[in-house]
Design a protein around this nucleic acid. Sequence first.
DNA 1: AAACAAATGATTGTTGACAATCTACTAAAC
DNA 2: GTTTAGTAGATTGTCAACAATCATTTGTTT
Lengths: 249, 249
Amino acid sequence: MPRAKLLLPALPNAHDTAIAVLREHSLTTLVQRELERQIVSGELEAGAKLNEAEIAGELRVSRGPVREAFRALDQSGLVRTEKNRGVFVRQVSLEEAYEIYEVRAALDGLIGRLAAKRIQPAQLQRLREIVKRMHAASRALDPDAYFPLNIEFHEVLGEAAGNHALLVNYQRIVNELNLYRREVISRSAESIPASTKDHEAIVNAVAKGDEALAGRLLFEHVINGRERLHRVLHEAPVPRARAGRKAAT
Amino acid sequence: MPRAKLLLPALPNAHDTAIAVLREHSLTTLVQRELERQIVSGELEAGAKLNEAEIAGELRVSRGPVREAFRALDQSGLVRTEKNRGVFVRQVSLEEAYEIYEVRAALDGLIGRLAAKRIQPAQLQRLREIVKRMHAASRALDPDAYFPLNIEFHEVLGEAAGNHALLVNYQRIVNELNLYRREVISRSAESIPASTKDHEAIVNAVAKGDEALAGRLLFEHVINGRERLHRVLHEAPVPRARAGRKAAT
DNA sequence: AAACAAATGATTGTTGACAATCTACTAAAC
DNA sequence: GTTTAGTAGATTGTCAACAATCATTTGTTT
């Protein structure tokens, strides 16, 4: 008798909450999120092949939702699909990373200008605390502590810009970039102090409401990051890239 | 006897070419492209509901590839999905459009700077011809001729920037924006001359290789476009019962 | 032994069927 | 007349089976 379900008391147990989740989200969405999490966290490493049946088995769903999730992840740039061969966690080449950094610089420049105009006290406070923790990680030269702080810093700043479309595009770009940076940044402990200084200056510019300065600092911060990355990879000189240009007038 | 297929001579007919296409592209990809075309062209108007079975029937495929295509289109911002209700061609509100314009301005600013640095003679020639045709459409005050020229202009410029990641993100943004602009721009014939002048100045700046100027002009061009749009919308909404002001939620 | 050919196994691409959910309509109650 | 409950139809979400393609191994030939 299905009627019984309606008479159940509102005692939430694991089964009920699972059903509640499914009422709002499709399996495809859940699979997509889980895979995204695994990719972004590095659990699935770049270049790894994603086997439909295997993933479906692990997540206890059929291949349909998995395939749909693959399509979404492909479009968002986290995986690449080869017909009849499968999908693979995207590997971002140095050249691609270089291009993506330019895009990110432009978006971050905009974020800086908007954040300087619109940031709210609570958000500013969060930024200041993150920077404080960054200083600690910086003194300890601890990349594993610094990396998530860096992510959080730019996340908060992105929210402070108060432009949802901008945030969505920014997050996508940063995700792609993180595919590239993870392994590298852990080897670049020496760049942490410089990066921390950048962040501090950015917070000050935003706090002052100096839109032009905040925009330029963020733009340069990203370009600096790109060059640091490049230097770590090839001890060779960085391709000519002028950090000083402002994002957009 | 399926063996016969292997013995067929290499005379291309409709059937063979269809098979050749499928060797390279999955049905999902083809469905995705077709729907994207229909949405961008306006064949499917904003807010329209996309029925899985219906589309599958029209395109002679099963629902699987259609659903996968939906996922990709959702991620690229062309449709919105409501669980158990279906997918709809995305409607971009005025507020969203306003936000997206800001993002586009930042990306276009970057395009301007990069294009000024890297554009090739053939591309510059294409831009000049487009502007010439724009002048013609401008004198005739013909929005239907002007609209595609405008799209093409920015497409060429985007290619000239020589940054693939930038181009991909830019196209996505422009697609979203076009969801909003189509109906509006046709009513704003009076802004065509100003827009044409913008384009001409941009070409000149790019031709001179003046990165800062090209970047600034493009940024301002987009913002101007946003303001023109805003003005058209807020002047016109008169009680006069002229058809259709539904989009602006 | 090296290289090519055929067959086998594994994986992806596609389809149709079934279950769950929503929408629209009818009818009864107030 | 309006509202509410119930039901029938349509639509989406999920799944499992089938077909096509690719990868690997085995066997044959030189």
